[in-house]
Amino acid sequence: MYAFEFARPRTIAEAVKALKRDEALALGGGQTLIPTLKNRLASPSVLVSLTGIAEMKGVCRTDDGMVAVGGGTPHAVVAREARKLYPALAALAGGIGDPAVRSRGTIGGSLANNDPAACYPAAVLASGATIVTNRRKIPADKFFRGMFSTALAEGEIIIEVRFPVPRKASYQKFRQPASRFALTGVFVARFDDGVRVAVTGASEGGVYRWKEAEKALTAAFRPSAVEGLKVSPKGMIGDLHGTPEYRANLVRVLTARAVAAA
C-alpha cells in the first residue's frame, strides 16, 4: 500500500467534510478496497473510514412499510436483522462472501463499488429500492451506470437504502468457483403490481433488469413462464469461468429457480 492518512469520523457531517479533501477516498467495510490498496491500484491521500458512524448502521421498518438499511450496515447484521422484515434480502446478505467478510463488508460499500458480480445490486434493482445519500434520493433504476459505475458524485455517501418489500422474493446465486462472487445471480421480486427481475454477474453492462421475464412473470408467476424465453449471449461476460452462452443459460435457469423458491 502507498501511505495515506487515516480519518475515522463519527458523524456523517464529519465524513462529508473529510471527503472534501484532495484525493480523499471513502472506506466502507474495506473488503474490496483494502485488497485494491494492497495491490497499489489506488493511492488516496486520505482514507475516510465510515465504520465509526453509528447513525449509518442498522436495519428498521419505516413508517411507510419499507425496510431501511443504513449504508454502513455490515452484511452479517442485515442477514440477522432483516430476517423477518425482508427474508430474501436477509438471505442474500447472508450469502455474500464468507462470515468474516460479512462482519465488515457493508451495503453502502457494495453499492458504491457496483462490482458487476456483486449481490446487493440485484436486490436493490429488483426491489426498486431508493438509495439515500447525504445529498439526495436516487431510485435504483437511475443508480447503476454499468460496471463499477454509479450515479454517485465525488464525495457523496450512501446513508441508507430503502427497500419496498415484495410479496414474494428470492435471490438465486450461482457462485464463481474461485471468488465465490456471483457468476450470475438473479433476484426476483413479486409485488402486487408486477414482478421485477434483476440480474447480476452476467452482463458486461453490470446489473440489469430482465424486462422480458418480468412481463412473462407478471402474467403468470411460475417457473415455466421463463423456461421458454430466449436469452441472448450478446453482451454477456465471457471469461475463464463462463462463456457468454453459459451465462445466458444461467440467467434463464436461475430466474426459473428463483420463481420456484420465492
Binding site: 474495506g30 473488503q31 483494502i34 482514507l47 455490515p74 464468507d98 462470515p99 468474516a100 462482519s103 471468488s179
Partner: peptide, 27 residues
C-alpha cells in the same frame, strides 16, 4: 493471501469474526 480470501488471519473484533488482513489497525 492478499485478496481477503484465505482466512488464516481471522480474529474476533468485538465478538465478530474478521479477516485481520482486511481491517486497518486504526479502525
Amino acid at each position: 493471501c492478499d485478496t481477503s480470501q484465505c482466512g488464516a488471519c481471522v480474529v474476533h473484533l468485538d465478538g465478530a469474526p474478521v479477516k485481520a488482513c482486511s481491517v486497518f489497525a486504526l479502525d
